[in-house]
């Protein structure tokens, strides 16, 4: 569905993604792990079409991203790592604003379900800057998923969220996946990824060094640890697998 062919990304002289090729299959739930600065977020931004590759091609259902950009953006829901919300607005005003700028009609039933599941009605009239980190994350997810996307890109959506809120979010995302949506999910929490993913991607040294099932990851784990011995953060992450 989404194919990367010999893609790399540089910012000025700094290489953030070294050349790699991979395919993300439709309907898969991909858990992405890796140390900080390994290129996970940049990879997600490439999928979201927020960044252009410096080299190589990205295609969406066989069409280049340049041609399919509108379709890509219409089908992709992106939840950034940052709380990308207007802090002064209430939850209600926030959702109303993002709905207004959405070029397509928002699916009312999906939105209501999302509000119920994330229990946003409990803080409906509260300003974002007066909410706890967990609530802010939930609103951040809700805004990112507003268009009822078929491909959901989530960059550490539960960072700093309390356990109860985390369970709400994971449960809802699992349901979305079961309904056939594609998920690409970055997290440092292996337990969380295990609940959601049917496939994993491991990033190290600025590229994906592994893509496959949990069973294959367990088989490859020691090889990976040997290959990236110097990368202590990666080793620590893989120890949890």
């Amino acid at each position: 569905m989404i194919q990367f062919h010999d893609v790399s990304k540089r910012y000025k002289r700094k290489s953030v993604l070294n050349p790699f090729s991979l395919t993300v299959k439709e309907g898969s739930a991909v858990g992405i792990i890796g140390p900080n600065g390994a290129g996970k977020s940049t990879f997600l931004k490439l999928v979201a079409s927020l960044e252009r590759p410096s080299n190589g091609t990205v295609s969406f259902f066989g069409e280049s991203y340049e041609k399919a950009i509108r379709r890509v953006r219409a089908e992709i829901g992106y939840v950034p790592q940052e709380i990308a919300l207007y802090e002064e607005l209430t939850v209600k005003e926030q959702l109303s604003f993002w709905r207004k700028i959405e070029p397509v009609e928002v699916d009312e039933a999906f939105l209501n379900e999302m509000i119920q599941t994330l229990r946003l009605n409990e803080v409906w009239d509260q300003r974002i800057d007066r909410l706890s980190g967990g609530w802010k994350r939930k609103v951040n997810i809700c805004v990112g998923m507003l268009k009822n996307p078929s491909i959901c890109l989530l960059d550490e959506p539960t960072a700093g969220v309390d356990l109860a809120a985390k369970e709400d979010i994971i449960g809802w995302l699992r349901k979305l996946h079961q309904e056939g949506r594609t998920l690409l999910y970055i997290s440092h929490d292996w337990y969380e990824l295990k609940q959601l993913s049917d496939e994993y991607m491991v990033f190290a040294s600025g590229k994906p060094v592994f893509q496959g099932s949990e069973r294959r990851l367990l088989e490859e784990k020691s090889n990976l640890m040997n290959s990236y011995k110097g990368d202590h953060e990666l080793t620590r992450i893989l120890q949890y697998v």
Partner: peptide, 12 residues
């Protein structure tokens, strides 16, 4: 804050 990115992906 990433709001512009979000707008870019929302509004094309």
């Amino acid at each position: 804050a990433g709001r512009l990115q979000r707008i870019r992906i929302t509004q094309y």
